[in-house]
């Protein structure tokens, strides 16, 4: 199918170039976005949403989305980094990629790419099933302090955002992080089933994954990981509950290694324009993503800081030597 698609893309591009051969009005020409994960997940949705807006708003003539899945995104990263100097290529990435690079001993790191922008963020929520004896985040903290191993955490893949948040919470309350009892699941759905079934003590995942269940009274939010309370979620933030942690599962894009300043500026201009459109804002609100747009040098700076924090957490919970 992918072959067909690129063929179709090529035909479409050819047709377009005939039509627009005389003075195209696009900010960028033909962009390609690599999604280092399978279709359907958060990175894939981000990449496809970008393509939709960039094309729909005529910010680019064509946008090809390419999935190269595997090993927490590091296979896609390695492939992306092996083609330096491509001025129209972008790679979707985010918080979890840092962890995957470390746990998989990836030979290629994000340092060999050109940071472009952070686009979205999804905050995390801590939940318990409706019939859980834990009523507040305070009670969970007490339980963690008394017997850290007795609290089983249900969330997504090992080393991912959910796991990192569990580690950060343990550390913030002063519990022994090596006793973190984390039960990894291969996807949000599987984790949700474990939480609803009461098989784990507390569930941790993106707030959006729990809202529907919380509204229908099957789950109870204990806290959210944002810096301010989230509209529509009746729960305090971790920070205001005495657990000094703020963590967003952010997603962004990086450019090909070794592109020059002018090429980088051109991509950033396209992204700036995209983030400002009404269409992009509508997608954000439809998907429940928080706008976390941060581009250029500010993003590069953020990436460095965030990286250091993730590395430390993964060391604390014993996933990385």
């Amino acid at each position: 199918m992918s072959n067909l698609r690129s063929l179709r893309g090529a035909v479409a591009a050819a047709a377009f170039s005939l039509v627009f051969a005389t003075g195209a009005a696009f900010a960028a020409e033909d962009l390609s976005i690599m999604v280092p994960a399978n279709p359907g997940g958060g990175w894939d949705q981000t990449g496809r949403a970008m393509a939709e807006v960039l094309q729909g708003e005529k910010l680019a003539r064509s946008v090809e989305v390419d999935n190269v899945a595997g090993a927490g995104g590091t296979i896609g990263l390695a492939q992306f980094a092996s083609r330096p100097g491509e001025p129209d290529a972008m790679l979707v990435m985010g918080l979890v990629m840092t962890g995957a690079i470390l746990t998989n001993n990836s030979p290629v790191t994000l340092e060999s790419t050109t940071p472009l922008a952070r686009l979205t963020s999804e905050y995390e929520g801590l939940v318990v099933p409706a019939d859980s004896p834990l009523k507040t985040i305070g009670e969970l903290v007490e339980k963690l302090k008394a017997d850290p191993a007795s609290v089983s955490w249900g969330g997504g893949s090992a080393g991912g955002t959910d796991h990192i948040l569990a580690g950060l919470v343990m550390k913030a309350v002063g519990a022994d992080t090596s006793k973190l009892n984390y039960v990894a699941h291969s996807g949000g759905g599987e984790a949700l089933a474990s939480i609803l079934g009461g098989h784990v003590t507390v569930g941790v995942s993106g707030v959006g994954e729990f809202v529907e269940q919380a509204n229908s009274g099957k789950l109870r939010f204990l806290a959210v990981s944002s810096d301010e309370q989230i509209e529509g979620v009746e729960a305090p933030t971790l920070a205001e509950s005495g657990v000094d942690v703020v963590l967003g599962n952010w997603r962004g894009v990086v450019g090909s290694p070794g592109i020059d300043d002018e090429e980088r500026a051109a991509l950033l201009a396209t992204l700036d324009a995209m983030a400002a459109t009404e269409a992009w804002r509508k997608i954000l609100s439809d998907r429940g993503w928080t706008d976390a747009y941060l581009s250029g040098d500010a993003f590069a700076e953020f990436l460095k800081e965030d990286d250091a924090r993730v590395v430390q957490t993964l060391k604390d919970i014993g996933l990385v030597e």
Partner: peptide
């Protein structure tokens, strides 16, 4: 009934629901 995807295809169908601003679940 729960918004629980139990196969790869179901996960993508869930994404499709969300694309239309719908969240599968009890409601």
């Amino acid at each position: 009934a729960l918004g629980l995807p139990t196969s790869a295809t179901a996960a993508i169908l869930l994404a499709a629901f969300q694309q239309y601003g719908l969240q599968p679940g009890p409601t």
